[in-house]
Amino acid sequence: MRIVRHQEFGAPSVLRVEEADTPVPGPGQVLIRTEAVGVNFAEVQRRQGIPIGGPATLPGSPGGDVAGTVVALGEGVTRVGVGDRVVTGVGSDGYAEYVVNRADWLFPIPDGIDAGQATSLPIPAQTAYHVIVTAARMRPGESVLITAAAGGIGHLLVQLAKALGAGRIIAAASSRDKLDFAASLGADLTVDYSEDGWDERILAATGGRGADVVLETVGGSVLTASVGLIAPFGRMVVYGTASGEVPAVDVADIFDNRTVMGFSMWGVMAHRPEAMAEGAKRLLELVASGEVRPVVHAELPLERAAEAHALMEDRSQLGRVVLVP
């Protein structure tokens, strides 16, 4: 089978398609014939040699969210059968024609969405759900500020905030196209954080109060400015640093009953596994109802994996970037 790997850290061009044996499912595992695999920013960072959720090692073989059809079962698997269409997140060997993973880590693909859209369900949608529900504990009527609001996770956060009853949804992104996209998904106010004074515009629009919930993943100066946009008794959840810059937070800025917390999806999987099933159930309901609709920006063949990573690095996508074997 074909699989994408890299033998060194570096630019997207280090990604190469190689030939490998088709994996064999062990006890409790299934073999999936891949229809689409979602590209996550964490894999871009690991390709660069940045350890995210674990060490970045060589040779590297990116993981991702794989949607496809079950073609073989390992010993003891009963909850799914051959022919079932499923989606799952894998930590490595994900950009491939066939993938093996645990049977208890599978989502059924809901009716009405295609394989590319389904790749949003395991990691991006679970991350979005647990950022806003488990970490931020958003309550109906609260205002929410979402940075990188047009990305693979951000565009889901906008829709989740709306579906869960947020009061005012403020979307921040770095271009007019991204802001228009976020508005089309339900954002009430959009602000370009590449422009000077963007945070002051948000404060002015909120009567100097800021947002009850701030969901931040850019890092750098955007993170620093976002601390000042937390309303009294509000919560900011930092779930990534796409810019690669991790500034220090001055505790003096949060003494006014403000909370800043970090979030890791790996932490939820390790310490709150029961929350994964809860999130999966709720997400499938929201997708089935049409309240949350994953958007695919581009579908590219495996041979163009480098182009997919370049899109992610440029942060130019509106929604999800997907590879198709």
Rank of each mutant, 00 (worst) to 15 (best):
T147P: 02
H271D: 13
E19A: 13
G60D: 01
V222F: 06
S120C: 15
M261D: 01
R320I: 02
G28T: 08
Q29I: 05
G240T: 06
A306S: 13
P55M: 12
V238A: 05
K281I: 10
L185Q: 01
T88R: 12
G63Y: 07
V292Y: 02
G94I: 03
A231L: 03
A211F: 03
G112K: 05
A280L: 13
A149I: 00
G54V: 01
P23F: 13
R102H: 14
V70K: 02
T119H: 04
T57G: 07
P62E: 03
G319E: 06
S184V: 01
V24D: 08
R282N: 14
N257W: 13
V30S: 08
A305F: 11
M261V: 13
V227D: 04
P232G: 01
E43W: 02
L283W: 11
L203Y: 03
Q126R: 15
G267V: 04
V158Q: 00
V218A: 11
V296K: 06
E303R: 13
R168D: 11
T127A: 11
P62N: 08
V71P: 04
D199S: 15
Q117P: 03
P301R: 12
T206N: 08
A305P: 03
V213T: 12
R176M: 05
A248I: 10
S92V: 11
R102T: 14
E307V: 12
T127F: 13
T34Y: 05
G28Y: 06
A103S: 14
G319L: 07
I32N: 05
Y239K: 00
G197M: 05
M265I: 15
T57D: 10
G60P: 05
R201T: 13
L284Y: 07
V44C: 12
V287Y: 11
A306T: 06
G64T: 07
G74L: 12
G151H: 03
A182T: 01
H130R: 13
G74I: 04
G152R: 00
V80T: 08
G207Y: 12
P25F: 09
R33H: 12
A298G: 09
G112P: 03
I123P: 05
V82P: 02
S184N: 06
E35W: 00
L106F: 09
V86S: 09
P25Q: 07
A67Q: 04
L185D: 01
Y239V: 05
A310E: 15
P273A: 07
I132D: 03
A204S: 14
D104T: 09
I230E: 04
V222H: 01
A182H: 02
T190E: 00
A231N: 03
D314H: 15
M138D: 02
T190K: 02
G49M: 07
S316A: 15
R282Y: 05
